[in-house]
Design a binder for these strands. Structure first.
Length: 699
DNA sequence: AAGCAATAG
DNA sequence: GGTTCTATTGCTT
């Protein structure tokens, strides 16, 4: 990007042009119209992860706990613990009995009530928001921050002199790292910004945490944990391959959960390298093009997903688990408890819920685990009003009766039943017409919206910005509705709420893009139609060189990928558009069924009973799968498609075609694969005589 | 819109 | 392994 600086005479070639368009509306207008401005630049993403969050909050509330081994307990589980306890062998999700065994002096505090954690969590987010508008929450204790703009601003009028890294650099020690600082000025600056944010969070909120600084969310998250308590790590592009390779199993890739890992394992894939090398066509067959592409990219450390601002929550729920509840009366009492607190939370939020859901977990020997079922319904207007308005024990009563109706749709209350969990949930939250809420969520009431740009006063180097100035974004405190601001040192001034975009009512998803007035004299307001944040469109990845499409990238031969990633000569790849290919007739599942037997138990010890694998060649032993790549792929082609011709097509096109052809494949497969795991679902429960209804006249 | 699965912390 | 108490997204009907 610096290279572009002196490129007055440099001709933008088509690819860069297009890339710019996709990359950043702002950069586009700047770049196109005045060549001088810094171009897209690499994104720099910060991942911030609070250290043993619940334990920290408890230690904050009671400082005496800092010196003792502390565990936060929910039911009979230690959900987290401080580092003193960890040194004694206590770990997360350990049972209380095990923990006490390991560490008899362990001090326990109850943590079922998340109120304090939630409040502190939002204070952290709010503090981060005061630095940059692009903050995405992940659970209560993690946040992503897109700090690209902050960096660009500093880079602009910066002491182009010495750059250095704050904190650790992945796979590079002090001296070597410093040498690299000048070749990665954005990341170097990013590391300083990370240090400032951590310091702000420490000094103002008293909390410590880890930060990861990298080119995308995936990498930032992965790197943030490399030095554990209260430290930070920056990942340089040349180390991407290292950090991906260092992952222990595919399960450690964010986005790959248990089920996906299982399916991958059934394909013979157990570590990241396996996935990197696995033939794209086979992956598409198993998962469909979009997921296949995502998985491939994840394995390579490629992630173009934007940091999406997290708004106020889209649902509020309260739940409790227990050994046994088996009577309608107990359900009512429990529901009332839960609803009382939920309604109170809802009232503080200020928005009005329009749908209500009841979720239960039934006990049964076969169905012992993980089956929740739920029923939901609209909330009648008169009940909705009572929630937000005056003290509404009234609302609670009505809601309990609603809950019982929903319950009767799931259990035969006349017969014996056994519940182990109840959850009540408000969703479809709408901001009430011009109320207090409007001012808080005002111009951005949609929970998730992407902000392309903010008109920043520029904090210029440190400290949160003065959010009372321009811009009309008073995001600070946006989430803590009703919570009388606690300890925010610099009280987040809820500035004159100018809800300019009077967007009440239906505002779903859209991108609000505000032209920047800051450093870029935006000149083509019209052309920039920066609504290119559309999910179906081609996505872009920043860590990749400017003219490489990430969707395609994942499908290139590995050598090429690595070459590209190592910043070697530009690939000659040109993004392809779909040719007017005439619709080919779908392959009528002429599946040459698995030409193989099982070979199931492969791949590491097979202690676990592998459920039988999905049909279609995936049951091959791993080596076979690897070797067989090409062959297996063309036997899937429709009869009227020449395999050779097909193989010549660009990989992304292959994927799209294949998805169309076997539109059903993944569909059939997935259920098949999960069948075993989930077959336990008991006999269907039919909605039953509403014996209970008579007790609730309702209205 | 409803219900559920998958993922995550 | 599916604990606890949430919350989000996407698929399917």
């Amino acid at each position: 990007m610096l290279a572009m600086e002196n490129s007055d005479d440099e001709v933008e070639d088509e690819n860069e042009w297009k890339q710019d368009l996709k990359d950043s509306p702002v950069a586009v207008s700047g770049t196109l119209n005045l060549l001088k401005t810094t171009t897209p630049a690499h994104r720099v993403i910060l991942h911030f992860d609070l250290d043993c969050f619940y334990a920290q909050v408890e230690m904050l509330r009671n400082p005496a706990l800092r010196e003792v081994p502390l565990g936060v307990q929910q039911k009979y589980i230690i959900v987290t613990c401080n580092y003193v306890a960890r040194q004694q062998g206590v770990t997360k999700l350990m049972s209380v009995t095990d923990a006490k065994e390991k560490c008899p002096q362990l001090v326990l505090v109850k943590g079922e009530d998340l109120t304090h954690y939630r409040e502190m969590s939002y204070q952290v987010t709010d503090l981060l928001l005061s630095f940059s508008p692009l903050v995405e929450r992940l659970g209560l204790d993690e946040n992503y921050v897109d700090i690209t703009e902050m960096i660009q601003r500093r880079l602009a009028h910066a002491p182009l002199s010495s750059f250095s890294f704050k904190g650790h650099v992945y796979n590079a020690s002090g001296a070597a790292a410093d040498a690299k600082a000048s070749s990665h000025p954005e990341l170097a600056l990013g590391s300083h910004i990370a240090a400032e944010l951590r310091e702000a969070i420490h000094s103002r909120l008293g909390l410590t945490g880890c930060a990861g600084i990298a080119a995308n969310k995936l990498l930032a998250k992965l790197v943030s944990g490399t030095f554990k308590p209260n430290q930070q790590t920056t990942l340089l592009p040349e180390s991407v391959d290292d950090i991906m390779g260092a992952l222990n199993g595919l399960r450690n890739l964010p986005g790959v959960g248990r089920q996906t890992a299982k399916m991958l394992q059934s394909l013979g894939l157990v570590n990241v390298r396996d996935l990197q090398l696995f033939p794209p066509t086979d992956l598409v067959r198993e998962f469909g093009a979009p997921t296949a592409t995502r998985l491939k990219n994840l394995s390579l450390g490629v992630d173009d997903s934007p940091v999406t601002r997290t708004g106020p929550p889209q649902s509020l729920s309260d739940e409790d688990s227990f050994k046994k509840i088996s009577s309608a009366k107990e359900v009512m009492e429990k529901s009332e408890q839960l609803l009382s607190s939920l309604v109170e939370r809802m009232r503080k939020d200020g928005r009005r819920p329009h749908t209500f859901r009841l979720t239960i977990r039934k006990y049964s020997a076969t169905n012992k685990w993980y089956s929740r079922e739920s029923r939901q319904c609209p909330i009648p207007l008169h009940i909705g009003q009572k929630i937000t308005n005056a003290s509404s024990d009234d609302a609670v009563v009505q809601l309990v009766s609603l809950a019982m109706k929903l319950l009767s749709k799931m259990v035969d209350t006349k017969a014996a039943f056994h519940l182990t969990l109840i959850n009540v949930c408000f969703s479809n939250l709408q901001t009430s017409g011009r109320g207090s809420i409007t001012s808080f969520f005002g111009h951005d009431s949609s929970p998730k919206t992407q902000i392309s740009v903010s008109s920043h006063p520029d904090p210029s180097s440190s400290g949160p910005q003065d959010n009372s100035s321009s811009g009309g974004r008073e995001l600070g405190a946006a989430h803590r509705l009703g919570t009388p601001s606690v300890t925010t040192p610099e009280k987040t001034t809820r500035s004159p709420p100018r809800c300019h975009t009077a967007t009440l009512g239906a505002k779903t998803k859209q991108s609000t893009s505000v032209p920047s007035e800051a450093s870029h004299p935006v000149t083509s307001p019209s052309s920039t139609t920066c609504q290119d944040r559309d999910d179906t469109a081609i996505t872009v990845t920043y860590p990749l060189p400017p003219n490489v499409d990430p969707d395609v990238f994942g499908l290139l031969p590995v050598e090429i990928q690595k070459e590209i990633l190592s910043e070697s000569p530009q690939s000659t790849y040109q993004p392809r558009l779909l040719p007017p290919e005439p619709r080919l007739t779908p392959l009528p599942t002429s599946r040459n069924t698995n030409n193989t037997e099982e070979a199931i138990g492969r791949c590491d010890g097979g202690a676990t009973p592998h459920q039988q694998l999905p049909p279609g060649g995936s049951t091959l032993p791993r080596e076979t799968i690897m070797e067989e790549k090409r062959l297996s792929s063309d036997c899937e082609l429709p009869v009227n498609v020449d395999p050779k011709v097909f193989s010549e097509l660009p990989a992304d096109l292959q994927m799209e075609l294949m998805t169309e052809w076997k539109r059903q494949k993944p569909l059939l497969k997935v259920p098949a694969a999960k069948k075993a795991a989930r077959e336990t679902k008991g006999g269907g429960r039919k909605s039953q005589a509403n014996s209970l209804l008579k007790y609730f006249k309702h209205t």
